[in-house]
């Protein structure tokens, strides 16, 4: 299989587990959005046009607070900057079937998980495989949001409260294991958490800096320091 070109159906098969995962994550997002008072169809539209968990969670907080366009764009720019790097890598992995027009389409579907699967393939990636890979995650993300957003209002209050921690618990599951294993990531995670707590608990900062801005400033500062102290090796940085 490694030698023959990847087909659409291979993509579908690889995308199935991602799609199932997205279904549950999006459900938690939908519930969160409904707790914040966003209309269910609006939340669904967010998921269909953004396809990103952390960015959307930060986004709905800003939308619920009716923040500024500049704030939401800057916050998304920082939170989603990783997709830029992934786009660069994917660009080199893509074969000739990725014409310029098709690159405009494929770009919408770059996520952490889709990228990770695509980049782990030994051979070059063709457009049909990539789209096959993206279909089920996209559908799972959309349907999960619909289910969460519509059931958010009818769920009992204590269940709603319990689901409120879901996305944060997932973030912990993403950052904690590598932080335990590697000093550079441990430093990044710990310093960002510390700075973020400082912004939250120091009244002067909290009263003068919105939540979104505080998060991106903390993240940028700790990542910038980490990059200076622990420059990554070639292989760390696909």
């Amino acid at each position: 299989m490694e030698q023959s070109p990847l087909k659409f159906k291979h993509g579908i098969k690889d995308g199935l587990p991602i799609g199932l995962g997205y279904l549950s994550v999006a459900f938690a997002f939908g519930v969160q959005a409904s707790i914040l008072g966003l209309p269910a169809l609006f939340s669904t539209l967010i998921s269909m046009t953004n396809l990103t968990s952390a960015g959307q969670l930060a986004g709905i907080t800003i939308i619920a607070a009716l923040g500024s366009v500049a704030e939401i764009m800057l916050v998304q720019l920082v939170i989603n900057s990783r997709y830029f790097l992934m786009g660069v890598s994917l660009s080199q992995k893509a074969d000739a079937t990725f014409t310029t027009g098709k690159r405009f389409i494929a770009a919408a579907f770059i996520t952490d998980e889709i990228f990770a699967v695509a980049i782990s393939k030994r051979q070059a990636i063709n457009f049909k495989y990539f789209i096959g890979l993206a279909v089920l995650p996209y559908i799972g993300w959309t349907i999960g949001t619909v289910l969460g957003a519509f059931s958010g209002d009818i769920l009992p209050a204590n269940l709603q409260a319990a689901l409120g921690i879901a996305l944060y618990a997932m973030f912990i599951a993403i950052i904690f294991p590598p932080a335990v294993k590697a000093l550079n990531i441990c430093f990044t995670v710990f310093s960002a958490a510390l700075l973020s707590c400082a912004c939250y608990y120091i009244p002067f900062i909290r009263n003068n800096l919105s939540e979104g801005f505080a998060i991106i400033i903390c993240a940028l500062v700790s990542a910038a320091v980490a990059a200076a102290i622990f420059p990554v090796k070639e292989k760390d940085n696909e």
């Binding site: 952390a54 969670l57 930060a58 920082v78 939170i79 900057s81 990783r82 830029f84 790097l85 952490d112 409260a161 319990a162 409120g164 921690i165 944060y168 618990a169 973030f171 912990i172 993403i174 950052i175 590598p178 932080a179 550079n184 990531i185 990044t188 995670v189 710990f190 310093s191 960002a192 958490a193 700075l195 973020s196 707590c197 939250y200 608990y201 505080a214 998060i215 991106i216 903390c218 993240a219 940028l220 700790s222 990542a223 910038a224 980490a226 990059a227 200076a228 622990f230 420059p231 990554v232 760390d236 940085n237």
Partner: peptide, 28 residues
Amino acid sequence: RYIRSLLFYIPYAVLSAMTFPFILYSTG
């Protein structure tokens, strides 16, 4: 190399700053 390192660390930093301390207020 610095830009590549920065882009490598940002996801961890963002998720951490988004989680703490907000996770403590996520359930009411």
